[in-house]
Write a protein that binds this DNA or RNA. Sequence first.
RNA 1: GCUCGGGUGGUGGAAUGGUAGACACGCCAGACUUAGGAUCUGGUGCCGCAAGGCAUGAGGGUUCGAGUCCCUCCUCGAGCACCA
Length: 940
Amino acid sequence: MVTDCKNYDFRKIEPFWQKKWLEEKTFHAENEGDGEKYYVLDMFPYPSGMGLHIGHPEGYTASDILARYKWANGFNVLHPMGWDAFGLPAEQHAIATGQHPSINTENNIQRFRKQIQSLGFAIDWDREIDTTDPYYYCWTQWIFLQLFKNGLAYVDDKPVWWCSELRSVLANEEVINGRSERGDFPVERKNLRQWVLRITKYADRLLQGLEDIDWPDSTKRQQIAWIGRSEGLELDFEIIPNGPKISVYTTRPDTIFGATFLVLAPEHEFVERVTTPENREKIKEYISNAKRKSDLERTDLAKEKSGVFTGRFAKNPFNGEPIPIWIADYVLISYGTGAIMAVPAHDERDFEFAQKFNIPVKQVIVSPQAQFRTLNNQNYRRFFNDSIEEDGSSESFPSEVYESEESHILPQAHFQTLNAPNYGKFFNDSIEEGGSSEPFLSEIYENDGPLDRDSEDVADSLPFCADGLLINSGEFNGLTTEEAKKQMAQRAEQLSFGKRAVKYKLRDWLFSRQRYWGEPIPILWIERSQYDRALAEKNAYFYDQIPADVVSYVKDGVEWCAIPIREEQLPLNLPETDTYLPSDNGESPLARMKQWLNIFVNLSTGDISMVPQTGFISAIRETNTMPQWAGSCWYYLRYMSPNCEKSLVDPRAEAYWRSPDFYIGGAEHAVLHLLYARFWHLFLYDIGAISAAQEPFRKLFHQGIILGSDGNKMSKSRGNVVNPDEVIQQYGADSLRLYEMFLGPLDAMKPWSMQGIEGVYRFLRRIWVLYVDGEGEMEEFLAEDDAAVDRLLHETIKKVTEDIEALQFNTAIAQMMIFINAAQKTGISHRTAVIFLQLLAPFAPHIAEELWARLGEAFSISKAGWPIHDASKLVRGQVKVVLQVNGKVRGEILVDSDATQEMIEEIAWQQSRFMGFLSGKRIIKKVYVPGKILNIVVNF
RNA sequence: GCUCGGGUGGUGGAAUGGUAGACACGCCAGACUUAGGAUCUGGUGCCGCAAGGCAUGAGGGUUCGAGUCCCUCCUCGAGCACCA
């Protein structure tokens, strides 16, 4: 059954097949199967009121091509779609209209579903999920309870980012340069009680896990930077005389002999104690100034350092030297120990500070290249000979730094560019066994003057922050940075004035939001005395559901303790209300709903009552909700068994699908979603909720952004927004899909062009005309293909297959265009017509399915197998060999593909034009690249 | 400032160290047409009548041969930004 179109009427063809795929559940995946499984995942969309953006189909088409390609290859493919539907816009709509956000959300989902379906994706719609569906967020809440139970969710009263515009707190990751990621509103620091997830406990595993997953480098780098692991030393500096010890953290203990002052953050606990009476006033003022500055100002004013001297000194544990203690706000209380040893010679910030306050700068590290940098041709050889021992070894250049694998170029070029890790290699490579140095021609070794290694010429410019060799560092002199770090750590630990330490930039994840439209946190608060009593009597229903350390906070002199809602009571539904606006004091709208808020709980059963009852005590509900990231942290698991009622994922389904084989989505989620989801996945793995894989996304890809035709980001205000519905109406879904893939490399930023889409539309129409005549009847196909077309077909099979595997869809489409251009001229056989459609189907499934059916083939082309190229058909009888003289093209000849170099030369000598370039010249060399190039090198 | 990733015709973009510009858009010419913003055919990097020369951000280097490898600089984009 096909449509009745005579021409390429995509408006009929596309809905026809979309309906059929839906009705027949063509792309339904079973949780078992004969074929190998393949799980293709798109980052699910937030169903905004704006409808589908033209950028959405880019990633979705890419994943759809893969899905259909894998179906054709006999895989059991899971390609699902769902909705990340909690979020701010729906809530703001609710605030504005007074209408429950679920209504608006549902409308948006309907629209998105319809739009996505109109693109003909091979999606299993039976597995559609919605994060705002209580049957879904039930399990989001369940995961939270497990985090709570395992001590990974706790409340904290530390300063958090507060955005008064959004009336909500934000996670560190959601704050960019002192403004909210969403909406770009200003944020400020505020002390609020908040739920926090202990993601820092997973810092090391989140780092290690990156090593063997196939992700874009930039995304890996971003996560590595965000986790910010550093190894260093915590060192004790004793306050003189006999004061307490200030612990500082440093990653550069090798520079400690250059420490000329010590800095405490203004919030450091020792500030009071170290300040001498005459400095007290000054310090007080400085601290209150620092406090007034927002974090934004503190970082914004980074150019100009500020600080005050405390009047006191501390003793350098390595050399006993007294160094002044300063207070300065360029040191952050939130990292390390909140105190640093400052080494101005080897740290830019310390240098800047020292310059401003006239503190001595003492160089203790020299760069080996400092000497190279200034050596001229006459001197460098001398320098070498002076440095190299008789046995060829080189004292100043320890072999440890001989690491990289570069080959050498010109000696001089090397000097300009060698960095510390490479210079040793250069030496070792250059020096012969006898101590001589071949690459350094003796002609340039002329100057007999003494080599002045101490002259100012060779000095490093300060601050010098790279690795190097130690000077002015007592017994550590001459060591490399690397070796010195080791030895100094050992020394510090032996004499117990320091210890090795690992620090992270990653902070715990601020997990609560003061919003209505989010998952309620399934926690109750009861008074400490009740909590303790229930535990002592061992009848608490939550006995084995709470962390080892009580989670509590104190308000108005009462300590409240967190207990979980019984798992069987999940989902904890959002209570109905008609006021969605958060209060401006940092409380969620839920806090206003007194009836819902104040309840009674039976501590032995976990039962909840709205009214007082015997055996029930009063409790308060947690009123914060979860951030939008919560639902997207585990949705890929829910797709595996979307209706499972017993657990978040059916263990059998999870064991079968394991984790997505391919994940595609925007690069804007590089740290947020992708870090949070990895954290939850590791946790779920640890508690045995899942078992198949420790990393959720083994292969990740970011599609690029599609810009407006003016090269700018699409935006309403610029008026360069392209509406996918209109494009589909005008050119069809196949054209849209094809065009977005043809635009350029998948990961590149590309400007949209309405003229460009005409090209792929013509391509599809030419295909139609090749198959169908003006009456809607199939064309008469050739009995046999032209040999060249046959070869081209096999080249096309090969190219399209390889390009799909490599995600190079633009060149795959170009190859299909080449094929059609040729086929149009000669005509094709029925067999070839069938094969070409199979190649086309993942890209333009509607027209392919239609023509497939018209050829009399069985539904559906997407399951009809994938053609394999015949290598023997690719062999050409004759090949073109390009003739070059000194690398310039001077002709070409057609020869048998098995021709030898001699035979080719013989033919070449007969080419008059070519010979013209050779006459009167002496042939120095002949370079023959088999079947491609004959290059004759001549002299004049 | 630091770290990455780019820079190729009028445009989007192709090119395992081996004929730079595939494919497409646009443009030019022609055909069919009452008509063409439909379709088809041919042409199209720049200079030059041609022979030929010049061309992948600029400059240098390695190589028989460089868009591709190395160095310096310019420039655009992304990320990070007092994390000691």
